[in-house]
Design a binder for these strands. Structure first.
Length: 579
RNA sequence: GGUCCCGUCGGUUAGUGGCCUAAGCCGCCGCGUUGUCAGCGCGGAGAUCAGGGGUUCGAAUCCCCUCGGGACCGCCA
């Protein structure tokens, strides 16, 4: 039995007519006309049609195969008869007449049809992931991933970046996500942690003088899952020395631009910049989706002189303008419920009909004049609807932002396109209810904004940082910052965080020690590769661009992981299971 | 930790208190078919209705619990 292949299915076309070729793959479909039998043979590139008649070599084998049998066919490429060309296939102009056929493997009837599994329950697909991955859609996603990684690596290589691997067995660090722990056998009672990111290592590489580092790094976070979150995922991790923020941002933008051009053939517009404050004010989110209709309207000033204290005395009044939208009373009631479920006290609506007349849930308090002033301030045109949320702080923006997104999604008003943006000037600290103190919004090595450094002690909550995110279509794709490299500034940050010298030494001592031996100015960023690929592939979930993903509860139905282990294994690592 | 949705032949759907001895399509098995490509025609097999408990004369259907899957909030990136 010879094993081999001369061509992939998609490589066969009119140019090859008359040649003898060998193809190999899985039986996608078989169509038996009694005398004449067709088999669609599938490999990772696509399908090619095999045709055989009684008495010809290999007919018995072709007649006997079933779905997902593995076979090799050596035969002659011939053009299909007139009118029989299948334009849906790359090889649709030709077919193969076998000279010899080898059935390598038979196959049980698969639990779902590989040819059409789009509706199949995902749990079943994950359990038989090797079958699921045979589906052209998922094969295409894996190929997209491969091409993207090649393009990314080439970009960084050509720009002088060194790919350096960092350990997966690392140390538990206090800030950020919950760690996955690995018990040490040789050091009883002690644990490694799988890295949440190579953050410390890449900063140490800067101290080491590597200067430009990148890594396609697997990282681990033991938090609850989402459609765009897996417990292990892949980062494009980047760190540079002696580059200012502007240079880092434009280089990373160039990386994405070259990736999209090379892999998708798309030319990206320059990414707009938006401060975190503006993102919150205009979109109620630190990851605005620019495709979802007009930004939010701040109506606090316009409401100030209204004869209705609910709006006039509110610290913050925010409006969502819904263009060309005339909701029913029932829909309006649903928006009120939605706002309440998002934590708002209520929601005021103004509907402006096509003839310009207005009605409102608060018309008797606002009057024609009040409705007119609010509509004017929000830019409401005839035919539009305005929903308003009042409150304090960013809460009304966040509620209004959610409503804006929900409405755009439900009414199919998400505009097409790749709407990237940079969000900058994130707050340096955020208040942790859980811990009752300020914590680092990004991580404790994030550089404060130079204009705000003198407020570190007096008003730390107002201090902006040199942190930045890349957002694409409402998804956070990357996050990074300039890092602190001066010891005195770092000490002031730790003071705000309320960390004692002992804690600092215990948690970050090794990094601070390193910084005493000459730390360059440095900064970096990390991209969520899986999210990026999900968006590039047009997939609904990150799971569709990962070969072997976990379920929403963090299990692997294919390997049945996690699983119990033997007592002996537990003893080796000095653990016992608490009952 | 919380909220919501879902679980019926191998797959996917129908069924919302008696007409269910659970229906259709795909797949599977058999027979037929020489130009199909979601092949076609005829016939057949295939379901403890996720599991347990309850209500009822009667439960796939109503209620409760458990298990499993998914989305979201919290958390996290």
């Amino acid at each position: 039995m010879s094993v081999g292949r001369t061509h992939y299915a998609a490589e066969l076309n009119e140019q090859m007519v008359g040649q003898t070729v060998t193809v190999a793959g899985w039986v996608h479909r078989r169509r038996d006309h009694g005398g004449l039998v067709f088999v669609d043979l599938r490999d990772r590139t696509g399908l090619v049609q095999i045709v055989s008649e009684p008495g010809q070599p290999g007919f018995d084998a072709v007649e006997r195969v079933r779905a997902e049998y593995v076979m090799g066919v050596t035969g002659t490429v011939r053009p299909r008869p007139d009118g029989m060309v299948n334009a849906d296939l790359a090889s649709g102009a030709v077919e193969i007449v076998p000279e010899s056929v080898t059935v390598y493997s038979e196959a049980k009837t698969p639990p779902f049809n590989v040819g059409d599994a789009s509706q199949v329950d995902e749990l079943l697909r994950l359990k038989y992931r090797y079958l699921d991955l045979r589906r052209p859609e998922l094969t295409a996603n894996l190929m997209l991933r491969d091409r993207s990684l090649m393009a990314i690596r080439r970009f960084f290589h050509e720009h002088g970046f060194l790919d350096v691997e960092t350990p997966s067995l690392a140390r538990s660090t206090p800030e950020g996500a919950r760690d996955f722990l690995v018990p040490s056998r040789t050091q009883p009672g002690q644990f490694f942690a799988l890295p949440q990111s190579p953050q410390i290592f890449k900063q140490l590489l800067m101290v080491a003088g590597i200067d430009r580092y990148y890594q396609i790094a697997k990282v681990f976070r033991d938090e609850d899952l989402r459609a765009d979150r897996q417990p292990e995922f892949t980062q494009i991790d980047v760190e540079t020395s002696f580059m200012d923020r502007e240079s880092i941002l434009s280089l990373m933008e160039e990386m994405l631009r070259s990736l999209f051009h090379e892999v998708l053939g798309v030319t990206l517009e320059p990414f707009p910049r938006m401060t975190w404050r503006d993102a919150m004010r205009l979109y109620g989110s630190d990851k605005p989706d620019l495709r979802a209709g007009p930004p939010l309207a701040t109506l606090t000033e316009a409401a100030r002189t209204l004869p209705w204290t609910v709006l006039s005395e509110a610290a913050n009044v925010v409006g969502v303008v819904m263009p060309s939208y005339q909701p029913s009373r029932k829909e309006l009631d649903q928006w009120v419920e939605t706002a309440k479920s998002l934590g708002a006290n209520g929601l005021v609506w103004i509907v402006r009909s096509d003839d310009g007349t207005m009605r409102s849930s608060a018309s008797k308090w606002l009057g024609e004049d009040g409705m007119g002033r609010l509509a004017e301030a929000a830019g409401v045109k005839p035919g539009d609807t305005l929903l308003m949320v009042a409150g304090a702080g960013w809460a009304p923006n966040q509620v209004a932002g959610q409503i804006r997104l929900t409405h755009a999604r439900e009414s199919g008003r998400i505009e097409p396109g790749w709407r990237f943006l940079w969000v900058t000037e994130f707050p340096l600290f955020e208040w942790s209810e859980e811990e009752g103190r300020l914590t680092s919004a990004h991580h404790p090595f994030t550089m404060p904004h130079p204009e705000d450094i003198d407020r570190l002690a007096s008003d730390p909550a107002s201090v902006r940082s040199e942190a930045y995110d890349v957002v694409l279509n409402g998804t956070e794709l990357a996050s990074g910052s300039l890092r602190i490299y001066q010891q005195d500034l770092q000490a002031r940050i730790f003071a705000v965080l309320g960390l004692s010298d002992e804690e600092i030494q215990a948690k970050f001592g090794f990094l601070l020690d390193a910084f005493q031996y000459g730390a360059p100015p440095h900064g970096g960023i990390a991209f969520g590769l899986d999210r990026l690929l999900m968006l590039m592939a047009g997939a609904e979930s990150i799971r569709d661009v990962i070969a072997f993903p976990k379920t929403a509860r963090g299990t692997d139905p294919l390997m049945n992981a996690p699983s119990p282990v033997d007592d002996a294994q537990l003893r080796d690592v000095h653990l016992s299971i608490r009952k």
